[in-house]
Write a protein that binds this DNA or RNA. Structure first.
Lengths: 361, 361
DNA sequence: TTGTAAGCGTTATCAG
DNA sequence: CTGATAACGCTTACAA
């Protein structure tokens, strides 16, 4: 059906080998026959069969992307970026969704290896897995780079090639920013999940709070798990409950002047919830979010946020992978890319009143 | 390196054909040798080389997903769903991002066909393309189903297999809902883009407004293109400008009691912008959005919205594709899935005062 | 029930 | 500079 090397070779009464070489511009083939072949190929609308080429070469020019949490704007952004890089380099990308589950990840990875992928990018932090599991299960027969937004202890990855976010920078910048604006009563809001204690974002937050002499870091964490659930593919906030809890928090902590929200959705929620309570952002309370979901920029006021440098991370991951695929480099290597602090309008000068009060119901 | 059919055949001193059949549970092979082979295969950790199988069979059990607009939560949700369906059916999926551009789409599609994909799902509406272009360029040598959230005139697709959203239902439901709540001064907000006039959402909105006897539909559209731009991979709202324009609108249309926002980001923006102006939602003005971005549920109040039935659409698209791939069905067929209207709290009873007034700056 | 051999569309080695 | 030929790993008539 489709035109093949043989079919064009036959038409020209020459060998398939010659056609193959000509079409790849092998300088061994004389210019004249090269041209003859190429023009006929074009005429016959020849397209190389890449699966045959893959079989022959043992390389398919494909990579697999194991996507962790689905339904996230950030996942899609990463994929688009990866696709762009890969495509420019002549690769095609398979994507498999793993829900952040280690076993699913491993299973899909092996399937993709069976498909002949030349390399793998594995996104996910696997907070529920043990260090040993990570070290053993995440080793594959093709070059692999791990990719994680937030890290749960670096040691687990010491034998891998990995790109991660260095959250400490962003958090420190955010807290310094708030400090300069006069804040000291800074709290972190979080809706927790299994394994959260190991998340570097908390640890760095504690550190930063303590280094400013604001007291014990842990005392500045206000968290709840009741209002946050992973339903199907989405994280769900129980808004009514969250509204109540926020009000309760403010009553028991009227001294609070600034809140850092570890979930972007919650930051969004909080901004409008405060407006409803008659509390102005940033005049009465300053808010800082995490990640850079586009809607954060369209919140009123637009939200300042500690953001993952998604593009840079994808760039590095791809580069690491290409080193592995095209230059056989596979020595362990961890690249941590500093998170950014994006200043918008939700963090402002500290208010003058000591205590906050809720006007509206 | 990896164990192959031959390597296990050799160990057992039998032919590769037998091994091949045994491993696929061909009943021709005696149970006993089948077991012998299978257990050795397991022991040797045999994984079939799917690219070789693909070459042999002329089918790869892969499909290509051409993703339109990137960086959208909805894109990621669709992908995850498609991946789930495909994987259960034994398929793997390539994804290629096209930025909604027809030529990129065509180019990537052909690349994927060269990779041997068995079928293609093409997402995108291509508002800038002519009917002729759509009819000719979107035809490929493998089963293809088109997938579009909003349609720009159905006629262009009459020779394709397609799944789309029937927006009319959702819009009618939304407007009926508002009507029952006493609203008649209903407006639609939109930030426009090339080709927007053809978008069914406007057309259905006009229809619905007029069928209620509210007057001319077009008079109820408030649109601007200055504040909406497609910067890189993201749609950008100029929030300050949008804030001003919203204020201007309310001053010139103080009778407005309900607003339907065609962009979800804008609905989000509008809710918090109104809060800032001292206008309560829904007590003073009701808001309805489009699509169902998760953050819309976490807005305060949570936003009522006309939502794309993403899962159903993906289900149908996959089914259509499988018909094409596995049963050679390729007669044109269009499936329109009714959009849903999700009632949350941003649309409420119409206010009693005739005119709205802005209290805060 | 099993073995043999051709074929899928390439690339690569080795002669000529 | 070009042509044979083997090889990649698997499936599948056809034979035995």
């Amino acid at each position: 059906m489709a035109t093949t090397l043989s079919s064009i070779a036959e038409k020209l009464s020459i060998s398939r080998g010659t056609v193959s070489r000509a079409l790849r511009d092998d300088s061994q083939i004389s210019i004249s026959t090269r041209n003859r072949i190429k023009s006929l190929a074009k005429e016959m609308n020849y397209k190389p069969n890449l699966v045959a080429r893959g079989l022959s070469l043992g390389k398919t020019q494909t990579i697999g992307f194991l996507a962790g949490s689905p339904s996230l704007e950030i996942t899609s952004t990463m994929e688009a970026k990866l696709d762009e890089l890969a495509n420019n380099a002549g690769y095609e990308v398979y994507v498999a969704h793993t829900k952040g589950n280690l076993d699913i990840t491993v299973k899909r990875a092996h399937k993709l290896i069976g498909r002949g992928v030349d390399g793998l990018i594995v996104k996910g932090a696997f907070p529920e897995a043990t260090v040993k599991e990570i070290q053993t299960k995440l080793k594959f027969s093709v070059p692999t780079v791990l990719f994680s937004g937030t890290l749960f202890g670096k040691s687990a990855y010491s034998s891998h090639r990995l790109v991660c976010q260095d959250v400490s920078i962003g958090i420190r910048k955010a807290i310094n920013h708030l400090y300069r604006l006069g804040h000291s009563q800074i709290y972190m809001f979080s809706m927790c999940w299994p394994g959260w204690e190991k998340d570097m974002r908390f640890i760095e937050f504690y550190k930063s709070i303590e280094s400013h002499g604001f007291g014990k870091g842990q005392d500045r964490l206000y968290s709840t798990d009741e209002s946050y659930a992973n339903k199907g593919t989405r994280h769900i906030i129980d808004v009514d409950l969250a509204f109540l809890q926020t009000k309760k928090f403010l009553k028991s902590h009227p001294e609070c002047t600034a809140i850092i929200c570890i979930q972007s959705e919650f930051a969004l929620f909080l901004t409008s919830a405060l407006a409803r309570m008659g509390i102005r952002v940033p005049q009465d309370i300053s808010i800082v979010g995490f990640d850079d979901v586009s809607t954060m920029a369209y919140s009123q006021p637009p939200l300042s946020t500690i953001a993952q440098p998604v593009e840079e991370m994808v760039n590095s991951a791809f580069e690491l992978l290409m080193e592995g695929i095209e230059r056989d480099i596979d020595e362990p290597k961890q690249i941590a890319i500093p998170s950014k602090f994006i200043i918008r309008q939700s963090a402002g000068e500290v208010r003058s009143e000591k205590k906050i009060s809720i006007t509206e119901k």
